[in-house]
């Protein structure tokens, strides 16, 4: 392949399996901003988010076979890794007290792959719209769980609601979001 920027994500992961650092660099260029952005948003710390980002890409380097393109997109795979590590960190470091509400609409302007930025912005718009369409109680539990790093048990405790109710609202909220995103043509979310 003469131009690595034209390689698919799946092809890049295959190349990483052959120790191709340039392929890893290209994956970082495409998805690093999202991986870092999610970790920073959950942790509210750029320094800790950098650590998470490093771990995510080193893990991809060391275990590329953990990504299965048949099961989902590379972006979602990397974001899941980033989120899981950020949540681990926030739960173990008890850093939540340092958190403050963050603007969720930030997008990259420097050091980022402009080719993918338009898609990200379009997706962000769809996600914002999908979130807005959720009933308040569903949006609230999803935000507390995902962006604050709480378990559904903890969310129930915070909201003083039964665990079953929170579990059910997370489920219905995610399915509702899936339906909206699927209708908007976001690939991979449909069942």
């Amino acid at each position: 392949m003469d131009d690595i920027s034209e390689a698919s994500d799946a092809q890049l992961v295959t190349m990483i399996g052959r120790y191709d650092e340039v392929a890893l660099a290209e994956v970082y260029r495409r998805h690093g901003g999202a991986v870092f952005g999610l970790a920073r948003r959950v942790l509210n710390s750029s320094v800790e988010a950098e650590d998470v980002t490093q771990e995510v890409f080193l893990r991809l380097w060391n275990q590329p076979d953990r990504f299965d393109s048949a099961r989902g997109s590379l972006r979602s795979f990397l974001l899941a890794q980033s989120h899981a590590r950020a949540v681990d960190a926030i739960r173990s470091l008890n850093a939540r007290r340092n958190r403050e509400m963050k603007d969720a609409s930030k997008t990259a302007r420097s050091g980022y792959d402009m080719q993918h930025e338009a898609w990200d912005i379009a997706l962000a718009d769809q996600v914002t719209r999908a979130l807005e369409e959720l009933p308040d109680e569903e949006r609230q539990v999803i935000q507390l769980a995902y962006f604050e790093g709480h378990t559904y048990v903890k969310v129930a405790e915070i909201l003083q609601q039964p665990e079953g109710t929170v579990k059910s609202r997370i489920r219905s909220g995610m399915r509702r979001m899936r339906a909206v995103l699927s209708e908007a043509g976001i690939q991979g979310v449909e069942t």
Partner: peptide, 11 residues
């Protein structure tokens, strides 16, 4: 969930 967390920060 990936779409939900897909906000990009400058690296």
């Amino acid at each position: 969930a990936g779409a939900l967390g897909n906000s990009v920060d400058p690296l």
